[in-house]
Each structure stands twice: as structure tokens, then as C-alpha cells.
Design a protein around this nucleic acid. Structure first.
Lengths: 135, 135
DNA sequence: TCATACTGTAACAAAAATTATTACAGTTCA
DNA sequence: TGAACTGTAATAATTTTTGTTACAGTATGA
């Protein structure tokens, strides 16, 4: 992955974990992460539809965690963010070639193995654990 | 990672593993993988400078494995391909924010943990093992 | 009830990353 | 010497990612 989505999501959630039960505005999040508030709102939208956060509209609106940080595993963030695989995308090889015909099946297998390892590793750390690292 | 580099490299190396000691042309590789021969040659260039393959110029030229497929671990391919991390890039957050100031350090740590898991998993499989999966 | 401060989302623009193409000099072989 | 390659630069096209503008909708509280 060559985007910043995982970093951004984790940053958002860490701020929420630290602030407790307060609704944080996209403007506030934006200024800490240093990316555009509309991008933040788009990210919040995905975090919301996955059930990790909840939002409130209107004047004193904003977003906060839907569950205690202790109950959010970092692997949940990875699952949201991971479109293809940690190892990237596949090609569309030549089906007339014997290797070309079969390789995507074998690649998928490899991708799955690797992704499972990542999820296992990230499943051991909660958002609370991560947030606790900050002084 | 949202590119096809890992898939392409592994495809190239699989073809070489299957063909044994023959020099394969970029044209041949290109037609199996279905990407442009110049891209293939760029990829070969990196594989070469990393010592995984060797090439021969001129008429009957091409490339082949520099070592037996049995002695090439899939983790070596990952190391070549992996610029940032499996989890992506970091942002450049606001240093005036306490979380912003520290998060990249903690992210790096996480990235490293995850990348190590990936390398460990891919280190268990050789190119030969992978190539043997093809009928 | 009305100004204020937010959210949510669409539409569009810009930038960055990835992949493709063209071009051509250099190498080896028969 | 011509044919079939490699190696690499330069440039273009495409795709992905990020940023921007715009604006309707919602809640708050003076």
C-alpha cells in the first residue's frame, strides 16, 4: 500500500481514544493530522459505517469512538483499509501460458497467508494499547 | 502496496525457475505476464542488481536465475519490492499537537513489527516451492 | 427565529504514483 | 553485416491518491 489511510485512520482513532467521550470536529482532527478536513470527513464516514465511531451533526457536532478503545483491535483498522493485499495487486497474465493461467490462484493463496499473519499480529494490540504509548 | 511489482517479480522468477538454465528474453516474459517489455527490462534490472538473476546481452541474450530456485526465498522478493511498509505511508502531522508529534515514531514501530511477520512468513517458502505448485 | 458552527456529500481539480510507449545505442551471434 | 537481443533515457498516458470548492442539512443557543 502506498497510501496513508492506515496512518490516518489510526491517528483519528488515537485522538478519540485520548479525548475520551468528547465529540471531535473534523477541523480539529484535520489540524493534528495535517490533511484536508473533507478527506477527514470522508474517512470518518467509512469509520462510521464500519461501526468504529459515531458522529453527531449540528453545532456541537463531531465524532467519537463507538466502543471503548480497549475493545478496538488494530486489525480492525487493517481490515477496513486493505483493498488488495499487503503484497499488492495481481496482473492479468496471458491465459495461453501455463504459468500465466495459474499464477493468480497461487498468488491469492500467498496473499491470504500473509494477510492472516498481519491480522494476527495487529489483533494482539488494542487501540488503547497504542494510545498508551503516548506521553 | 497498490502496485503489481511483487506479482510481476514472482511471475518472472517463476518462469525462470520452470525453464531451468535457459536465458529468457524480455519479450517472452512480457507475453506471459502481459505487461510491457520495457517495464520487464526495468524490473530485470533491479532483480539483477540485487543478485537474484543474471543477464546476457546480444542475440541469444536474456535472463536466468543466478542461484537455484531452492535457494531463493520469497521474502527476498518482498524486501526488494517493499518501499514503505505493508501498512502504507505515514502522514506529516502537526508537531504542535502532542499526538501528532509522536505518532510517526509509534507507527514506525508497528510497521516494523508487521513487516517482520511478513518476512518471516515469506521466508518459509522458496521459489522452488512456489513453482512446484504449478501443474 | 436566526446566526453560528458543525456534518455529509458531490463534483471537480491537482498531484503523485504507476504503467506504457518510443527511440536508440550497444552487444552478441551466425 | 544483419538479425535479435539488452539497457536505458525520455516522454506520455493512465490510475490512484489527495486536495478544493461548494453547498444543503442539522443542532445549538442567544
Amino acid at each position: 500500500m502506498s497510501n496513508t489511510k492506515f496512518a490516518t485512520y489510526l491517528h483519528i482513532l488515537t485522538l478519540m481514544a485520548k479525548e475520551g467521550d468528547i465529540y471531535l470536529s473534523s477541523e480539529y482532527l484535520s489540524s493534528s493530522i495535517n490533511i484536508h478536513p473533507v478527506i477527514i470527513r470522508k474517512n470518518l464516514s467509512e469509520l462510521r459505517s464500519s461501526g468504529l465511531i459515531e458522529s453527531k451533526e449540528g453545532k456541537t457536532g463531531g465524532s467519537k469512538l463507538a466502543r471503548p478503545a480497549k475493545k478496538i483491535k488494530l486489525s480492525e483498522i487493517y481490515n477496513l483499509v486493505n483493498d488488495n493485499s499487503a503484497l499488492g495487486k495481481s496482473n492479468t497474465p496471458n491465459p495461453a501460458c501455463n504459468v500465466g493461467k495459474q499464477i493468480n490462484k497461487h498468488l491469492e493463496q500467498l496473499y491470504e497467508t500473509v494477510d492472516k499473519k498481519i491480522i494476527k499480529a495487529l489483533g494482539k494490540e488494542s487501540l488503547q494499547d497504542f494510545a498508551n504509548k503516548f506521553k
